[in-house]
Amino acid sequence: MAPAADLGRVLCIITGASRGFGRAAVKELARLVRPGSVLVLVARSGEDLLTLQAELTQSEPGRTGLKVEVVVADVGQTEGLENIIRTSKKASNEDLDHVILINNAASLGDVSRYTKSFTEMSEVDSYLSLNVSSALCLTARVLQAFPQRPGRRRTVVNVTSLCALQPFCSWVLYCTGKAAREMMFRVLAEEEPDLRVLNYSPGPLDTNMQVEARSKTADPHMKKTFSDMFSGGQLLTCEASCSKLMKILLEDTFTSGTHIDVFDV
């Protein structure tokens, strides 16, 4: 079956949209949705979001009917989630035939320490709230706000990582968060057969998170691995990885709930 030419008339909510992979995904999506689509861009940095909004509004899709809304919010806070849903419902209309949620917002956590140093529950709870609880609660709210109905497709993407599958020394918070999120979306896929659920691993990206990994990782072997990837030119651009994600979404042949790595596309 040939892949679709576009993603339809879409409402797409993207967290962590102001930079890196999220920003690249927004720009790719803008080219692949029909006029009348709505992009809801979520991040903590209002200035970066407004710059991206202006860029999209002035682009060809923007001139032909793409609506771009920004929500400056911390997804780790209930108020932020409420704001996202409120904005999305206000901006959407009955003509939209595809709802897409891209759970991209995440943080690396403290990689300068080993597991045995994490004795404070409040520190761990704070990390898991932003990286796990927020994704579950936002997804649940979106599914309730935009329920299944005839003629409407719904897709949920979790931006995951190899760290969801393999342990990285001194990355206990990040690996734990990614593993928990991945299982969360696998459960969701089992519960909601009409929903399309994808765990997409974008690969080693040339982003600020990689800079942090090279400079702060406590484990010397891991640190060297990250430095060697950078110096060896092995990091992917966000744009290259996002184009692979769009290919998966357009083809729409993946098994719901599956983990797909960028290198397998």
Rank of each mutant, 00 (worst) to 15 (best):
R152K: 14
R152P: 06
R152V: 13
R152T: 09
R153C: 07
R153I: 03
T155C: 06
V156N: 00
V157T: 02
V157K: 00
V159S: 02
T160I: 05
S161L: 05
S161T: 07
L162C: 08
L162Q: 10
A164F: 03
L165H: 10
Q166F: 09
Q166T: 13
C169I: 06
S170V: 01
S170D: 05
S170W: 02
V172T: 13
V172H: 05
V172P: 15
V172S: 13
L173E: 03
L173R: 02
L173P: 06
Y174F: 15
C175K: 03
C175D: 12
T176H: 06
T176S: 15
K178A: 06
K178W: 07
K178M: 12
K178T: 07
K178S: 08
K178P: 15
A179P: 14
A179R: 09
A179K: 08
E182R: 04
E182Q: 15
M183R: 10
M183D: 02
M184S: 08
F185S: 00
F185T: 00
F185P: 00
F185K: 00
F185W: 07
F185Q: 00
R186C: 01
V187E: 03
V187G: 03
A189Y: 06
E190C: 13
E190K: 12
E191L: 08
E192R: 09
E192Y: 10
D194I: 06
L195N: 03
L195H: 07
V197Q: 00
L198Y: 06
N199S: 14
Y200C: 02
S201F: 01
S201T: 11
S201Q: 11
G203K: 05
P204T: 12
P204K: 10
L205E: 08
L205A: 11
L205R: 06
D206C: 10
D206F: 15
T207D: 14
T207F: 15
N208C: 07
N208H: 14
N208R: 14
N208E: 14
N208V: 11
V211H: 12
V211C: 08
E212M: 14
